[in-house]
Design a protein around this nucleic acid. Structure first.
Lengths: 217, 217
DNA sequence: TTATATTTTTAGGTAAAACTAACTATTTAT
DNA sequence: ATAAATAGTTAGTTTTACCTAAAAATATAA
């Protein structure tokens, strides 16, 4: 089995890897996990020894097949627990992250399977992110960033990219949540900030914000 | 906050302390936690430094008020999670322990409170053990397992833990039901099986069976 | 293309939590 | 009451996972 720390590294690398095929840098991992670069180098060496990542000095890391499977298993648990907290325990979707960070490390295959069944095998978590199935397959959804919409376009919020609690609180304050209907009223040229209409209220959103909000047309 | 290891020590000391007022011995803790006595001495020193136990070299440890509160909080979480696993996730009562050992260390006051509410504020866990409330109070009359009675003790059956049909058939065959009066005639040392008198008949019950029968004195 | 800046790694240190082996205190039995 | 047995503690290691400071490699800019 793997330690919590190892699982956190796998997850971080998974998230940072994204679509690209190049290695994930030491510093990006250290930023993501709030540790120092030196600690990352050590951790990554341990992971490489265990064949969970491919690591080349000075050129970053990539998950191996095994590493990716494990990362996906952790992501699956994280998102299932978030669903549980919101759907069954009355948590708000912006206060589940830290707790799910702990719960995702619980080791029990039966627990995950039964939790999934109990929740009705949800495809998306409360943030709109897809939940991998037991084999690591994600449901595929076409998602657009709010920042990609044009003036006059309408959409429905389907997910949020940045899971930081400050961002989630910001969204809550603006009355934006999953399923919220938005209409682009105006886009400022100089900073790409957006004025959007939400239930007859007009709200100003920075490019940073609209980059992190996913919408369906 | 306290580490998992520290919480495990607190819980072990709590369980070993029982009713008595004398200190819990190093060796009993090491047996309970499957560690070595030397490790316990070290751990206990750390706990004493944090004012969670009173420790006198060579004379064992006792929980302080704070230590006891914390131990009870962990016990509460453990038993709530066991209830959740059995009542909602279709676990059998004999496969929940290891998972609950992990879940009991999750840190979130809201989680415990909401879980308790979600489960309908149960008074007993699936093993029949009382669940402390948020303040650390246990339900008044804790139920006893038949296996906890001594030779010569009498009791009345108040409930059964294992609801499997094989167990219920077994009980029916032995003429044991709700309200049945039992008297402990003998306890075998080597396998803890019990001879009980039920309406002038003597019956042999395994430890597995007596663990699943609750009695009032 | 060389100098500077940035990034990454190495080296050395710390703390928690376990271990073994050796020593010390307490208890028990003759 | 003293020796033997049992129990508990100390000392010295190990592993994991973090850190800082210094060195090395890579990237960038004049």
């Amino acid at each position: 089995m793997f330690s919590q720390s190892e699982e956190n590294y796998l997850k971080a690398i998974f998230h940072l890897q994204g679509e690209t095929d190049d290695g994930v840098s030491t510093s990006s991992i250290s930023t993501h996990l709030n540790t120092k670069a030196a600690s990352v180098t050590e951790a990554v060496k341990r992971l490489a020894e265990k064949k969970l990542v491919d690591y080349q000095k000075y050129y970053g890391v990539q998950l191996t097949e095994t590493g990716k499977e494990h990362a996906l298993a952790v992501v699956r648990k994280h998102r299932l627990w978030e669903s549980f907290l919101v759907d069954r325990l009355n948590f708000n979707w912006d206060e589940v992250h830290e707790v799910a960070e702990q719960l995702e490390h619980i080791k029990s295959i039966k627990l995950v399977e039964e939790l999934d069944k109990f929740l009705g095998r949800p495809a998306y978590d409360p943030h709109g992110d897809p939940i991998p199935d037991a084999k690591g397959n994600m449901p595929e959804i076409p998602r657009k960033k709010l920042s990609q919409l044009q003036k006059g376009d309408r959409g429905t919020c389907k997910g949020f990219n940045d899971a930081s609690s400050s961002f989630l609180k910001y969204l809550a304050k603006q009355q934006i949540g999953l399923g919220t209907a938005v209409e682009v009223v105006n886009i400022e040229k100089f900073d790409e900030s957006m004025t959007v209409r939400i239930a007859d209220e007009e709200v100003q959103l920075s490019k940073t914000a609209t980059d992190n909000i996913y919408v369906d047309p």
